[in-house]
Design a protein around this nucleic acid. Structure first.
Length: 532
RNA sequence: CUCCUUAUCGCUUAACUGGAUAAAGCAGUCCCCUCCUAAGGGAUAGCUCAUGGUUCGAGUCCAUGUGGGGAGACCA
């Protein structure tokens, strides 16, 4: 819709114009402040320029009016244009708001260590990433969702140790001393029992078998993580294991050429020359590569796989890590601008108004699965997707839990359900509805129709600006229009019934499509829970 | 100490990336049950951290200050 208008203007004025939605709908459907920027060049007042452009438009089938108001140029789309577009959308529901982009994107997100279930802090990046993924898919990008599994390093050894200690205390009844760094949590019980079944009790007391236990456990933990994600409607296309990458290290190091050098018996990457604070160690003096080395091999592998664009969603605490990885990418001979790192800010929790510190090792984590169980995946997704990802988010656990009826997700679902029930009550036939023409609807209905048809612009905008919250914002607004319309206009049994129901179908299509892009299924009926 | 990042009604967040009268949801006060649910609709009150700058125009850009959050590992 916007593209059409935009294209028309480009043709007319011979330049790209900024097109926006006026704050006040009475101004029209679209508007542009173009006259202000032309004012300087043409040395005429913006008002005069706007008038000139407006009157030069004449008759265009897409517009019912083009007006100049205080230097702004306002466009009103014609009924026939809107009606045609709406009918097309209803006939091709799966194509509504889609596009064909020819770009291959690799999106890496979550990538939480496989040492325990996902907690609430992971949920934000997970929801954000998955929503971006769905948007991109819908827009026709060839996008791959990837999970980088950090299954090497100390934390995996620790996992093995933690299971041993847990099992010795709880299964074998021994008294054990816990080191500071040990992991705690209910999930260890399942792991310990699983390990007992697989390996027998002996493995818990044998220090030399810690590694073996750990290697088995990290896979078991990954299964838990994958299930947590699936319960939230989040799925990955590919998984890459850190442990499988190091064998490629020598080759990759050579590939970086002068980018790495030896000093003090260690290997360093010359990252300072590429904007980092100082050079970083990639291989320790005992020959073990650092975590950074793994990430370098991983990114090399990503680039060798050949995508047009790479998006990483990292927690904000990885901020300082970006220059190192970009430096490595450049030494490897690739364009580091193709890598886009999006930081998802921390989620800080409040419990009863007090800051609540979570620590995996202390075992007082709030699990993502707990929240899903409590409020449902839909609500969780909606809440996280509604916040701009680059601001720190603070919420009260109690507040979070009581988000039942006050949660906007219900408001939107309710709008969709209302439409469905109305449709099922219709006194006219389906054919009557689909053959109805959306004309002479009146002001309110016109506005609602336009709002519903705005989804494609929102989807495009939300993805390209990486600001996922624009989608829920839009859905909220659309639901509000619907509720108001529902309240103001009686539909069933009126002369215009078929037309009005067709209009509602368009709204429902937008709501449903929008929700599905957030990984939420639209409901046809609302069931009020009466459980206390 | 250095570098990032952030600051908007009482609370949680928006504002089309420099445009028209700064907008929602909770919480407050008041009113309304109408096709399938009041999980709804209305009315009312309230906000751009401070100072300066850039220009037709600033919540948005720049500078300084102040208050939050993060980073400154041969942990991952």
């Amino acid at each position: 819709m916007k593209q059409r208008v935009s294209a028309l203007l480009r043709e007319k004025l011979g330049r790209e114009v900024v097109l926006e939605k006026p704050r006040d709908r009475s101004f029209g459907h679209f508007a542009t402040p173009i006259a202000f920027s032309l004012a300087k060049e043409l040395r005429k007042s913006p008002m005069v320029i706007a008038e000139d452009i407006a009157s030069s438009f004449g008759e265009v089938s897409e517009f019912s009016s083009v007006e100049a108001v205080k230097g702004y140029l306002n466009f009103r789309l014609s009924e026939s244009f809107l009606a045609e577009y709406a009918s097309w959308a209803l006939d091709n529901p799966t194509e509504f708001a889609t596009q064909q982009k020819n770009q291959k994107i690799l999106l890496e997100f979550v990538s939480a260590n496989p040492t325990g279930p996902l907690h609430i802090g992971h949920a934000r990046g997970a929801v954000y990433g998955d929503t971006l993924y769905r948007l991109a898919k819908h827009l026709g990008y060839d996008i791959t969702a990837e999970y980088y599994v950090n299954d090497a390093g100390n934390q995996i050894d620790l996992l093995g140790l933690s299971i041993q200690l847990y099992a010795r205390e709880h299964l074998l009844g021994e008294r054990v001393e816990y080191p500071e760094s040990y992991y705690r949590g209910e999930y260890l019980q399942g792991l310990a029992e699983g390990a007992k079944e697989k390996f027998g009790e002996a493995i818990f007391s044998d220090e030399s078998r810690q590694k073996e236990l750990a290697m088995w456990a990290k896979d078991a933990v990954m299964e838990i993580i994958i299930k947590d994600l699936a319960d939230t409607n989040i799925f990955f296309d590919t998984f890459v294991n850190e442990s499988g990458l190091y064998s490629d290290w020598d080759r990759v190091m050579k590939k970086m050429g002068d980018g790495v050098y030896e000093a003090e018996g260690k290997m360093w990457i010359r990252s300072e020359a590429k904007g980092d604070d100082h050079d970083r160690v990639v291989v320790r003096d005992d020959g073990r590569p650092t975590y950074l080395a793994g990430d370098i091999v991983y990114h090399n592998q990503k680039f060798e796989r050949g995508y047009d664009h790479y998006i990483n969603i990292w927690g904000a605490d990885h901020h300082g890590y970006i220059p190192r990885v970009k430096a490595a990418i450049e030494y490897l001979g690739y364009d580091s601008n193709k890598l886009e790192v999006l930081l998802s800010q921390m989620v800080s929790l409040l419990k009863d108004g007090e800051p609540y510190k979570m620590s995996k090792r202390a075992g007082n984590v709030i699990l993502m699965s707990d929240i899903v169980e409590e409020i449902g995946a839909d609500a969780l997704r909606f809440i996280f997707a509604s916040k701009k990802s680059d601001t720190a988010l603070e919420f009260d656990l109690a507040e979070f839990k009581k988000q039942d009826s006050s949660n906007p997700i219900f408001y939107i679902q309710y709008a969709h359900a209302r439409i469905q029930t109305l449709l099922s009550k219709a006194s006219v036939s389906k054919e009557d509805i689909s053959s109805a023409t959306l004309k002479n609807l009146g002001e309110a209905a016109d506005t609602l129709l336009f709002d519903a048809l705005l989804l494609p612009e929102v989807v495009e905008d939300a993805f390209s600006s990486r600001q996922v919250q624009k989608l829920p914002d839009y859905l909220k607004a659309l639901a509000a229009s619907l509720h108001k319309f529902y309240y103001d206009v009686r539909m069933i049994g009126t002369e215009d019934e078929a037309k009005l129901l067709k209009l509602l179908q368009v709204v429902a299509l937008s709501l449903k499509t929008g929700l599905s892009l957030m990984g939420i299924e639209a409901k046809d009926r609302m069931v009020k829970e009466t459980t206390e």
